[in-house]
Computed example of a mutant assay.
Amino acid sequence: MNNATAKRQPDLYWQQLQQLKAASVCIRLYRNQLAWRVRAVEIIKAVASSGSIAGWVVFKDYPILWSSIIVAAQLLDALKNVFPFARNYKSASDLMT
């Protein structure tokens, strides 16, 4: 092995390590950004379903309205993995572990 090849190998190693670290940081930031959206959907779902149950108990005048809100919240829960940001969040989380 000549001197040029011996010097080139560590340089390539450190260059690759820097690129991997930068990609890791970018994926972590992207995952954290998506976590806010996923958490917001979960909060909206929880507030909507529990609030509509409470509203149904207090105001028995509009049972169709309250049951529709509950159904929408359950549908949102069933379809949460279909949303692109939820899928991307799961994929980014899998990459980080």
Rank of each mutant, 00 (worst) to 15 (best):
N2V: 11
N2K: 11
N2W: 11
N2Q: 07
N3H: 11
N3Q: 10
T5N: 10
T5R: 06
T5W: 05
A6T: 15
A6G: 00
R8K: 13
Q9T: 14
P10R: 10
D11R: 10
D11M: 09
L12F: 02
L12N: 12
Y13S: 11
W14K: 13
Q15H: 08
Q15S: 15
Q16P: 09
Q16N: 12
L17D: 08
Q18P: 02
Q18L: 10
A22D: 13
A22E: 12
A23F: 00
A23I: 05
A23M: 03
S24R: 10
V25Y: 00
V25T: 14
V25N: 07
C26R: 15
C26K: 13
I27A: 04
R28P: 02
R28Y: 05
Y30S: 09
R31S: 09
N32T: 14
N32P: 08
Q33M: 09
Q33H: 05
L34A: 02
L34P: 04
A35H: 11
W36D: 04
W36P: 00
R37I: 07
R37C: 03
V38C: 02
V38A: 05
R39I: 08
R39H: 11
A40P: 01
V41D: 05
E42R: 10
I43H: 10
I43M: 04
I44H: 00
I44G: 03
I44T: 08
K45L: 01
K45G: 06
K45T: 11
K45C: 04
A46M: 11
V47F: 07
A48I: 01
S49Q: 03
S50G: 08
G51S: 08
G51R: 04
S52Q: 06
S52T: 12
A54N: 14
